[in-house]
Amino acid sequence: MAGDIELIRTPLAAAPGGHYSQAVLHQGTLHVSGQLPVRADGSHSVEEPFEAQAAIALDNLAAILEAAGCTSDDLLKVTIYIAGIQYWPAFDRIYAGYLGEHRPARAVVPVPQLHHGYLIEIEAQARSGR
């Protein structure tokens, strides 16, 4: 059964902090685990402004996509958890800068808090040619 499941791992994104993979590729779909704004070297950014945290989380997402042979143009669905709806406009602006003309399905979910006190977490699904 597990033969058709590929676990994706890259040192260019934050290592998993628990019992999960950065991403899992199965039947042409890449499932990217929630990415907090933890840098690839493991350093935390919880004290940094929302914009910096969003950029780090998106950088993690991009690195994982690349490790799986994908780009942001392959994104199908992105779910973003933000600790406060007031960050929605800033996130939308930063996100548009990362994705350009590509507009995957998306949900932005305001939540009361995230792990370690972070302001953002991003998970995604993407298509893969593998």
Rank of each mutant, 00 (worst) to 15 (best):
Asp4Ser: 08
Ile8Cys: 00
Ile8Lys: 00
Ser21Tyr: 13
Val24Gly: 02
His26Pro: 04
Gln27Ala: 13
Gln27Gly: 11
Thr29Asn: 06
Leu30Met: 00
His31Gln: 10
His31Arg: 13
Val32Gln: 03
Ser33Glu: 01
Ser33Val: 03
Arg39Phe: 07
Ala40Gln: 13
Ser43Ile: 15
Ser45Gly: 14
Val46Gly: 07
Val46Lys: 14
Glu47Cys: 15
Glu51Trp: 06
Ala54Gly: 10
Ala55Ser: 12
Ile56Thr: 14
Leu58Asn: 03
Leu61Lys: 06
Ala63Ser: 12
Glu66Val: 03
Ala68Ile: 03
Ala68Gly: 02
Ala68Asn: 04
Gly69Asp: 05
Gly69Asn: 02
Cys70Tyr: 00
Ser72Trp: 08
Asp74Ile: 06
Lys77Pro: 00
Val78Phe: 09
Ile82Ala: 09
Ile85Leu: 07
Trp88Ile: 07
Pro89Ile: 11
Pro89Phe: 13
Pro89Trp: 06
Asp92Ser: 11
Asp92Gln: 13
Arg93Thr: 01
Ile94His: 03
Tyr95Pro: 08
Gly97Arg: 07
Glu101Ala: 12
Glu101Lys: 08
Glu101Leu: 07
His102Gly: 02
Arg103Trp: 00
Ala105Pro: 00
Ala105Asp: 04
Ala105Met: 14
Arg106Lys: 10
Pro110Ala: 00
Gln113Val: 11
Gly117Lys: 15
Gly117Ala: 15
Leu119Arg: 14
Ala126Thr: 02
Ser128Glu: 10
Ser128Cys: 07
Arg130Pro: 03
